[in-house]
Every structure is written in structure tokens, then in C-alpha cells.
Amino acid sequence: MHSKTCLRDDHVVMTLSGSLDASVVGVLRHDLEQALSRGVRILILDLSAVSFVDSSGLAALVSTLKTALGRQVEVALCSLAAPVVAVLELTRLDRVFDIYADVAEARAAQGERP
């Protein structure tokens, strides 16, 4: 698992790649917390290069969403690879997350919110 963070104005884009699974979930949670702590209004997670997600990886994303909610930070998922889509749909978490086709769409949609 690798992450790359790009800070822009009121939002941060975090690009995750590789496998989001139990063996890396500690690092994943740490990186997500770091991204949330940037003091931005929107956290966009680009998941285009994620090859695998298990329940531990999903739990880290859900935990981040809950934490973000408490800090008035919006979380958007975008560019979902097929394995991510499948797991989100199976767990019905696709109804919980804001999901967009790509970073530009996520930025535009979140930017329109009051």
C-alpha cells in the first residue's frame, strides 16, 4: 500500500494504491488521519490504483468517514477500481460514501456544497 497526498486550497487529494488489507491497515489509518489533520474542508480519496480491499481496509475508510464527519470535513471517493466497487456494493457501503467518477468531478461536486 502506498499513499500520496496533494494539498490544494480547501481540499486534499490522497491517492492510494496497491492493497488495502489487514496487513497494512495500521499504516493506512495513520496516513488517512494525517490527511484529515491538514485542516481542509474536503478529503478526496483517489482509489484508481487500488488493486484489493478487504474488510479491514473498508473499516479504515469507514472510520475515516466518521472522524471526518465530526470535524466537518467532507470525504469523497473517486475513480474506483473494480475490486473496490465490488466490495463497496457487497457491504452496501456504496450508499454511505459519496462516490465520483474522478477527482475533477469530486472536486466540483464537493465545491458546490454550502
Partner: peptide, 23 residues
């Protein structure tokens, strides 16, 4: 239970593994 988008307390942070296996 299935997560309720309007209720953050229902968003699961555990217990998803076995349902994924069964599915």
C-alpha cells in the same frame, strides 16, 4: 444490519469479513 446512510452509528467498522466470505 445493512448500513443506513443517514445514521453514522450503523456504519460498520467490524463484522464485515464473514458476510463477504458468504457472499
Amino acid at each position: 444490519p445493512a448500513p443506513d446512510p443517514a445514521d453514522p452509528d450503523s456504519w460498520p467498522e467490524s463484522g464485515m469479513g464473514l458476510p463477504l466470505i458468504r457472499s
